[in-house]
Amino acid sequence: MNPNHKIESDKLADWLAKKIVEEIEKRANEMAKQKNEELKKVRKEKNEELKKVRKELKQIITDKDKMLKKVMKEKKEELEKGNSALITKERQSTYELQEAHSELIRGFRDLSGEGSVIGVKRMGEVDEKPFLKVCEQRFNGENVGLQHAMLCSEWQKNINDSAWYPFKLVVTGEKMKEVVDDEDEKLKKMSEEWGEDVKNAVTTALEELNDFNPSGRYSVPALWNFEHGRKATLSEGIVHMTQQIKNLKRQRT
């Protein structure tokens, strides 16, 4: 073979090989580009689907939230109506109990006699017995009645005087409570002048006012259990009044 022909043949072979490689690279690049475009398209479609799903989920959550809020609002309104009805019923029951208590007090004023176990006591009204006792010890004759009346009247006036506030706060358990302050100057002076029994009578009246009529400084009637020295329950009052009525009926027959 002619050397020149061999050279030309090799050049042609190299050129062909180069062209084949270029063609292969070109096709590979085109295929890669096509696949990349297809992948982008798929990703775009998937992203659109995902956005759609997210939008649907968001709408579902929004609808559920609205429904939940609506249900909660309805339940709240139902509870408020029920609570309002209970409060009204409780107020009505309290009013009826107060009315029954007041009626019992009015009835006991007519039915109860001296030494009755259940009766009416004026809360905040000073007990006159200690005053009478001390007046009998210090005064003679007609002066006893006069001094006793003046002394009781003076201290009842003091007890009803809102400007005089002989109370202090003390802690009992986890609560704060108002009690009579034994260190009050007026009470201390009274104890020195008239004795401890008279002071205790005034202290008791002050405590009763603070318990039974804290908004005012005047005595109020209360159904009282004299046997146990405490406020009588409504049932105790009804039972006792029923017995009193039965006794009256027996006396009339």
Rank of each mutant, 00 (worst) to 15 (best):
M1T: 08
P3H: 13
E8W: 05
S9F: 06
D10C: 03
A13K: 11
D14V: 13
W15A: 10
W15D: 10
L16K: 15
I20W: 01
E22W: 03
E22P: 01
E25H: 01
N29F: 07
K33F: 02
Q34W: 07
Q34Y: 04
N36A: 15
E38T: 06
L39E: 07
K41V: 02
E45T: 13
E45V: 09
K46T: 07
K46W: 08
K46A: 14
K46M: 12
E48Q: 12
E49L: 09
K55D: 08
K55R: 12
E56A: 10
E56K: 10
L57F: 03
K58H: 05
Q59S: 13
D63E: 15
D65F: 09
K66T: 11
K66G: 02
M67K: 13
K69C: 04
K70T: 10
K70V: 02
V71N: 08
M72Q: 14
K75Q: 11
K76Q: 07
L79D: 01
K81G: 01
N83C: 05
N83P: 01
N83E: 08
S84W: 04
A85S: 05
I87Y: 05
K89I: 05
S93I: 11
T94H: 14
T94K: 15
L97Q: 13
S102H: 09
E103L: 12
L104F: 05
R109E: 13
S112P: 13
G113S: 14
V117D: 10
I118L: 08
G124C: 03
G124T: 02
K129A: 09
P130C: 09
E136F: 03
Q137F: 07
F139C: 07
E142Y: 13
N143H: 06
N143Q: 14
G145D: 06
G145A: 08
G145Q: 04
A149Y: 08
M150T: 05
L151T: 11
S153A: 10
S153H: 11
E154R: 15
E154W: 12
I159M: 04
I159P: 05
D161L: 11
A163N: 14
W164R: 07
Y165I: 03
K168P: 09
V170M: 03
T172M: 12
E174G: 02
E178T: 07
V179E: 11
D181V: 04
K186M: 14
K189N: 14
M190R: 12
S191G: 09
E192K: 14
E193I: 04
E196W: 03
N200L: 10
A201R: 08
E207M: 12
E207F: 02
F212C: 11
F212I: 02
N213H: 09
N213W: 02
S215V: 03
G216W: 09
S219H: 10
S219C: 03
A222V: 00
L223E: 00
W224L: 02
W224Y: 11
E227M: 05
H228K: 15
G229C: 05
R230M: 01
A232K: 01
T233E: 04
L234I: 06
G237K: 00
G237I: 00
I238F: 01
V239G: 00
M241A: 07
T242P: 00
T242R: 07
T242K: 09
I245T: 00
I245S: 00
I245L: 05
I245R: 01
K249D: 03
R252D: 01
